[in-house]
Simulated scan of single mutants.
Amino acid sequence: MWTSPMELKWLLMWLLFGFIKGKTPDKCPDLPTTEFADVTAEMYPLETKLYYECDPGYRRKASMYPGIQCESKQQGAVWTYKLFECNDEKKMLSTALTMELELTQKPEGEPRSPAPQEQEDFSESKQKDFCGPPKAIPHASIKLPQQHYVGQVLHFKCQAGYDKRPPTSGSRTCKEENGKIIWTPLDMICTNDSSQWPPQTMGPGLTLLSSSPSSSGTRPVTGFTAIWFVLLIIPTAFV
């Protein structure tokens, strides 16, 4: 059966699209909310995008892109970087005013050569399909991505003051299970409210009760109260 050049072209495009799509990791569902916990990650699968964010009081230089992406290269999974800096806002304002003053007072001179840039550290994880932690940039931090991919592992830890009962740390993994992409359960609760926890058992048949009144407004009868009541009743029996 003869195939026209146009049909052959569409067939090749379909095969190429299927090959590329097969190499792209599947996206994870929305991450369940965990209150009062900090979330970190040590490794990121291919196609993950992260963004640097300047610390308060610092601002990125104009036209600098804060994003990086985990891509597959010949040496394995690596982050692709672009030049990014966070500078002190006060110094940037002072430098801008100084340059403006120089331009108004001095004739135009020879163009300045750009300052030499330091070599960046591009050390990556040895895992083939996972990038390690991104390089540190002064006065900047990394934000977790909004979209995750299969294979992502996130670590959770209760914030200070929200760790009344263990476990206070745990992890979730995005994986495919029975044809469905899920996040594994997180076996931890972060809260500073003691009423959220079950009473502690002190021994056989003994339970540590809360010192607060019960919901009905009555207080439990203690052994001392019972003895005092008996001592009050005995004299009346002989009257």
Rank of each mutant, 00 (worst) to 15 (best):
P5R: 03
M6G: 10
M6L: 15
L8C: 03
L12C: 11
M13S: 06
G18M: 05
K21N: 15
G22Q: 08
K23F: 15
D26Y: 13
C28P: 00
L31A: 01
T34C: 03
A37N: 04
D38I: 04
V39I: 07
V39E: 02
A41S: 07
Y44F: 06
P45A: 00
L50P: 02
C54I: 06
D55N: 02
D55T: 15
P56A: 06
P56C: 12
P56S: 02
Y58E: 00
R60F: 08
Y65K: 08
I68Q: 01
Q69E: 10
E71A: 11
E71G: 06
S72E: 08
Q75H: 15
G76C: 06
G76P: 02
K82Q: 15
F84E: 00
C86S: 08
D88G: 14
K90I: 07
K90R: 13
K90Q: 05
M92R: 11
A96S: 08
L97G: 04
L97I: 14
T98S: 12
L101I: 04
L103A: 02
T104E: 14
T104P: 06
T104D: 12
G109F: 12
G109S: 06
P111H: 13
P116Y: 08
E118I: 10
Q119R: 06
D121N: 13
D121F: 07
F122M: 12
K128Y: 15
F130N: 01
G132D: 01
P133F: 13
P134Q: 01
A136D: 09
I137N: 00
P138K: 05
H139S: 06
H139R: 04
I142R: 00
L144C: 02
H148L: 04
V150H: 00
V150P: 08
G151F: 04
H155N: 02
K157E: 07
A160P: 03
A160E: 13
G161H: 05
R165P: 00
P166Y: 04
P167Q: 08
T168G: 05
T168A: 10
T168V: 10
G170C: 05
G170T: 02
R172P: 00
K175V: 10
K175I: 11
K175N: 04
E176I: 15
E177F: 14
N178V: 13
G179K: 11
W183S: 09
W183D: 01
T184V: 07
T184P: 04
T184D: 00
P185S: 05
L186Y: 12
M188T: 00
C190A: 02
T191A: 02
D193V: 07
S194D: 05
S195Y: 11
P198Y: 10
P198E: 08
P199I: 09
Q200D: 09
T201F: 05
G203R: 07
G205R: 11
L208M: 12
S212V: 11
S214H: 06
S215Q: 14
G217A: 09
R219Y: 14
P220G: 01
F224M: 14
T225C: 11
A226H: 12
W228R: 15
W228T: 13
I234D: 00
A237Y: 12
